[in-house]
């Protein structure tokens, strides 16, 4: 006999999908599909010299963030703590807390010594200069 069970976790999953739709901020691009469940969401820009990575990390402190670059791999780690309250009642909790770690493959090798990261208004901005070897070089054409 086919049993229909109430599955609280499935219910939660459905709720969370509803929430995701409600808060949907995906770029409408492939990125959303690839990194759908990864935290934090990343935007990556590129020009000839550098890559620019941004992530929204509201509620984090600068000292709680760690950034590592190896070759073309970027790793961001951090921890966000919940506000502390004695007693009382939480009516709504849409924000999430805890530790995260995300590794990301960049389109080119990075000069790790010159990486520059800033954290302002809860937004992390990382400037990653491309390593000398992968930067475009203009070749002088010699007259023969």
């Amino acid at each position: 006999m086919l049993m229909t069970r109430w599955e609280p976790l499935a219910e939660l999953g459905r709720l969370s999908r509803e929430m995701e739709r409600m808060f949907s901020r995906d770029g409408g691009s492939l990125g959303h599909l690839l990194g759908a469940n990864a935290f934090p969401a990343l935007n990556v820009w590129e020009d000839a010299e550098q890559l620019y990575v941004e992530a929204e990390l509201p509620g984090f402190e600068l000292e709680d963030l760690e950034i590592y670059v190896t070759g073309n791999h970027l790793t961001i780690k951090g921890q966000r703590n919940a506000p502390k309250h004695e007693g009382g009642t939480w009516h709504r909790q849409e924000r999430s807390y805890g530790a995260f770690s995300r590794s990301f493959e960049l389109p080119s090798d990075i000069d790790g010594d010159r990486v520059n990261a800033r954290f302002h208004d809860g937004v992390l901005r990382i400037e990653l200069p491309k390593s000398e070897a992968v930067r475009p070089k203009r070749i002088e054409v010699q007259r023969s």
């Binding site: 506000p83 007693g87 009382g88 009516h91 809860g122």
Partner: peptide
């Protein structure tokens, strides 16, 4: 966009926490 919010109620007040990155 709709910012994410937490709402806490204590004896003396309600406290709202909202994520507004970049603001």
């Amino acid at each position: 966009f709709l910012p994410r919010f937490d709402i806490w109620e204590g004896d003396d007040a309600w406290v709202l926490y909202g994520h507004l990155p970049g603001v």
